[in-house]
Every structure is written in structure tokens, then in C-alpha cells.
Write a protein that binds this DNA or RNA. Structure first.
Lengths: 217, 217
DNA sequence: CAGTGTGAAGGGGTTCACAGCG
DNA sequence: CGCTGTGAACCCCTTCACACTG
């Protein structure tokens, strides 16, 4: 391999932070800012500057001592770190409001995620249009995943349907799942599963409000 | 205070886990399971049983040695821990697909979150119906929050509008914010802000797929 | 005697402090 | 001289192992 970084040694907590760094850097790029220091980045993210430098250090040396980081170069490097230098084929399963919201989200395509299909089980929804895509029948999910080399499935179906839908995607050879349904999906070898939990977020806020806390998490 | 638990000493990582425990317990309750052990819970969550017991221990002693936990009782106690024994008034700001998806989500009301208003800035959307609520003008947000004692705002507007919208909510005296817009909101004293980041989730999957990892995060 | 509750050990992640370098 | 890159210290969290109890 050209790049010899050992991603296995990257702390789990670092990965989502890289994504946040990238967002701020894109903003700086749009504003034609040529370079930043870790201190400036830290202020914009209210994070710790050493943390940022440490996170970068798992992947290489991206900065110039005494100067800082060149914004465009850093964007390129971090994108590579996150695997965004390749195209990922993505399907959304569940064409409800949440699925449609995600289908429309611009940020995905800009980072190399190609939405190639959207699926639903309701015969009233199958065949309707969502952006440029026509909603397909969930029954065809496995076949579609296999034939179109889909890497990632975003699951936005109701809880009771999620496990079945995940099975179909895995059957088709899916490699990664982002699951918005509030159920734990059974593990499958070689499949990376990430659980996202919207109602948990509200409960976390409830917890911190019910004492007299402030701050931010 | 009746309850003398010091919530300040609860690890941050414990809080979202409590919410997940609660979900599994609700499922057990629906299935008329009267009691569980920490081991059984751990299997259903693929977590560590000691972790679960430790998490509970920050709040009290909820189990019976040699037996386990009574499901209904445990649900009640954990709900209190998370502040779900009170009603929270919630507004959604941004009546796009994501806002509508959240407005419709059943799980919120069941845990004591009362959706009392939904707001948007577009004159084409203001006045339309979302479930039983009529979409109101964003300009009235501060006033509405103040007059209706709204505790929590869920922000689902586009990135460039989020900071302004948050200011209005804070002006009205909001106590907590769940922000789905991909921008950092400025801190405000006495306001708890929780950032939720949908595109970050996809990038995390991308990272783990771009090496040859499996597992789950 | 099964399963909780918890001190203590261990591991992972964050922060510090400074050496290294442009 | 300023800012990066990083070993080491520190801290928080997880896990272990077992005393305790119904």
C-alpha cells in the first residue's frame, strides 16, 4: 500500500472529530482563508488545540512548524484519512420523511457519497419520485445491492422492519449500515454497523436539564 | 430535595446508555417479562453486565441480590434518573422533511416530551398543518417560547439559519437545544446544547470501511 | 447459591509541557 | 520566535473480581 498509516491504532473518539474538523476547514476554504493554526481551529470548535494536533498525528505530519496548516492541503489529507477519496455507493431504505430528508441532503454528495437507490415497502410509495430517484420495492434490495456494488445502506424504516431490511442488505453484500431505527441490529461478520439514536438525544438533554447543569455535550 | 443523588458525578458516557437500557426494558415490559438480570440485559445490548450494574449504582440500588431487577420498577427508576418523570415542552424549528419526521415520531410523547409548536421561515410553509399543529412563523419563536414555557428546541433548519434561530429561542428563555444543523452554536449560559450530526455518521462508516475493519460503534 | 453492588485494577483518551524545526 | 509534533502525566471510564445478601 502507498499509505502505510495503521488505522487500527486511531482512537475511536478521533474519527467523528476528523469529520468535524473537515467541516470547519471547508468553511475556511469557502472564505478563502489560506492557512490556520491548531489554536485557531480549536477556537472555532471549542476544542483543545493539542487534541487537534494529536488527532492529526495518528495519520501523518500535515503542518509546518512555526506557521500552521495550509487549508486546502489539510482538507485533502483529512479526506483521505476518512476514506473520502473514493466514491461510496449508498442506498436509503425507508422513503418516509426521514429517508427523504437524508436523500435531499446536499452534504453527502459533496463528500463522495453517491445515492444510487431508495427503497420502501409500501405499494403507495414504490414508484414515486424522490429527487432524481424512483422508489423501489424493498423486496429487490438484496439484488440491487449485489448488482450495483452498493457499499452503505442507511436504514430509516420503522423499528419492527429494521432487522429484516438489514438482513436483505447484508445478503446482497453490503459493507456498512447506518441505522436510524431504534433497535439493535444483530452483528454480521465484515459488516460495520453504526447506530444513530434520535430519541436518545432528547433524553440526554432531559437528564442535564433535570439537574441544574449547563455546558455542552 | 427528596432524591439526594448527585447527578454531577454521573459519567457523561452513562447518560445515553441509560436511554438505551430504557428502550430494551420497555420492550421487555411489552412482552410481559417480569424481571431481568444484568447479564440478560447485557446480552440484548451486547454490553458488559458490570457496566450496566455500575451505571445503575450511580443512582441507587434497584435490584435484588440473587434475583435481578423487576422490569416495571426499573423502568420507573431509570425514567426518574433521566428526568422523564416530568413533562418537557418541546418545539421544532424548521418544518422541512427532517422536522416533520421528528414531529411525527411517536417515541417522544411516550417519554414525556410534549411537542407544543413547530416553526418555519418560509411563507409557503407557515400556516400548513403538521399532525395537529399549525406551522408558525419563526419571527414569533422567542415570544412563543416565553409564553408557553418551552424547555427544549429541536433545530432542523438549514445551516446558515441555525445560529439566528438559536438566538431567538435563547432570547425566549429556552433551556435546552438539540441541533441538527451542521454548525456549532455559540454557547449560552444556562443553556444545554447537544449537537447531532448526520453527515458525520456516514463519514465514520467510510473511515472504518476504508480499512478492513468490521465491528460496531 | 445466584446475581447484585462496588473497591480496585486496568485501559483508553485527553491534556500538558516541551523538544524540534521552519 | 512561533507553532507543530509528541512523550509523559493525568483523568475518566470500563472491566474485573469478589464480598455481600435475599
Amino acid at each position: 500500500m502507498a499509505n502505510s498509516i495503521d488505522k487500527a491504532k486511531v482512537p475511536q473518539a478521533t474519527v467523528p472529530r476528523l469529520a468535524r474538523y473537515l467541516r470547519v476547514l471547508h468553511k475556511l476554504e469557502r472564505d478563502n482563508v489560506p492557512k490556520v493554526s491548531s489554536k485557531e481551529l480549536a477556537e472555532r470548535l471549542d476544542a483543545n488545540a493539542a487534541q487537534i494536533r494529536k488527532d492529526f498525528s495518528y495519520f501523518g505530519e500535515f503542518g509546518v512548524r512555526g506557521v500552521g496548516y495550509e487549508v486546502k492541503y489539510l482538507i485533502g489529507e483529512l479526506s483521505k484519512c476518512l476514506g473520502l477519496d473514493q466514491e461510496w455507493n449508498v442506498v436509503i431504505v425507508g422513503a418516509g420523511k426521514l429517508g427523504q430528508a437524508l436523500a435531499r441532503y446536499r452534504g453527502f454528495r459533496e463528500e463522495g457519497f453517491r445515492l444510487v437507490g431508495i427503497f420502501d415497502s409500501s405499494r403507495y410509495v414504490i414508484g414515486t419520485q424522490v429527487d432524481e430517484l424512483v422508489v423501489q420495492a424493498e423486496l429487490q434490495l438484496a439484488e440491487f445491492v449485489r448488482e450495483n456494488k452498493v457499499h452503505i445502506a442507511i436504514i430509516t424504516v420503522p423499528a419492527q422492519a429494521a432487522v429484516l431490511v438489514a438482513q436483505r442488505a447484508i445478503e446482497g453484500g453490503i459493507k456498512g449500515i447506518v441505522n436510524f431505527a431504534p433497535v439493535r441490529l444483530p452483528a454480521a461478520p465484515g459488516v460495520f454497523i453504526r447506530q444513530v439514536d434520535l430519541s436518545t438525544e432528547l433524553m440526554v438533554v432531559s437528564f442535564y436539564l433535570s439537574q441544574n447543569a449547563q455546558s455542552r455535550v
